[in-house]
Computed example of a mutant assay.
Amino acid sequence: MRRRFDLRATTVTFGLAAVALVLTGWVVRMAFDVAQRRPAWVFVLVLGAVAAALLSRRARSRGAAARAALRTTDALAAATATALDELEQGRAVEEVEHACPEEVTAVVRTEHEELSPDEFEEAIADLCRRDGCTEVEVVGGAGDLGADVLATAPDGRRVVIQCKRYGDDNKVGSQDLQRFGGTCFTVHGADVAVLVTSSDFTAPAAEYAAWCGIVCVNEERLRDWCEGGGPAPWERLLPEGDGTEPPEQATW
């Protein structure tokens, strides 16, 4: 639909345009007259306009710089807060560790057959450390004269341990006990002599150990020792015999 021609609106528009043109011409003429009569004023006005433009630009630049500085300050504040949080968390962890120090855990696993003989000796040494022994040393190897682990019990007694990492079908016999019994007391000066195995003992071996006062720890008792269900070998009180008959077996 075409818009109707409005004569009144057109006349008003042209009238306003004419007035604006006359005013613009009058202003220009006055400025020209002033420039002719007082050129210093023109110079001052030009300088003022330039200064106003520079100040406006500087203000915008300062505003941008201020906003950039504000963003940088916010970023630094956030980074500082994060660092302080991490530091506090680290201090909290240290305080917990100091308050509740991590206990020494034994390396011995329930699947003893998976350990090599050397690993088995190290695992027994770890058990001794866990249960309060000091000066624990693994000495097994060629020329060990029957001692694999040496330690000092919490009460000061010297503990000498021989380790036999055997399979289930291979029990520790009396000959093994006899060889160990011949050196554990006289050579190594044991106050507590212990033979630990991952299998079991034959009846003659257990009997010989009872006569000599050697503590025998078989696979079942070793598992209890590992899991904390039984006392350490040096904590077992061996019964005293009168020499006429073997004392109670020293096997747990």
Rank of each mutant, 00 (worst) to 15 (best):
L238Y: 11
D126T: 02
V50E: 06
A68H: 10
T24M: 11
W26G: 12
S174W: 02
G90S: 15
D169H: 03
L76Q: 07
E122D: 14
R60Y: 09
R67C: 05
V172R: 06
E122L: 05
C226N: 11
A20R: 14
E235S: 14
L127R: 00
T72D: 11
C128S: 02
A193G: 05
A190C: 06
G213M: 12
E207N: 11
I214E: 09
T80Y: 07
M30H: 08
E240S: 08
A51I: 06
D6V: 03
S199N: 13
E227C: 06
V28I: 11
S198D: 08
T80I: 14
A52V: 12
V50W: 11
D6Q: 13
F201Y: 15
G243S: 13
V139Y: 01
W26P: 00
D169T: 04
A77H: 10
N170Y: 06
E86N: 09
A190T: 06
H112V: 01
I124T: 06
A209T: 12
G241L: 01
Y166Q: 13
G132V: 13
W41G: 00
A75I: 08
V28M: 12
M1V: 02
R67I: 00
R8T: 04
A68N: 09
A83G: 06
G146K: 01
A142S: 13
A52E: 09
C133V: 02
V44H: 14
R158T: 06
E220G: 13
E111P: 04
P154Q: 03
I161L: 05
R4I: 07
C212I: 14
P231M: 00
R60S: 10
A232D: 01
G243V: 09
R236P: 07
R4V: 10
R58T: 10
D200M: 07
K171W: 11
R130L: 07
A99C: 11
T11S: 15
F201D: 05
G90I: 06
E121I: 07
A52M: 10
E248L: 12
T202K: 00
R91F: 00
A210M: 08
A75K: 15
R223D: 00
A40R: 15
T11V: 08
Y166V: 03
K164W: 02
A69P: 01
D242A: 12
A193Q: 04
L177A: 08
D126V: 00
R157P: 12
E248F: 03
L238H: 08
R3N: 09
S174I: 05
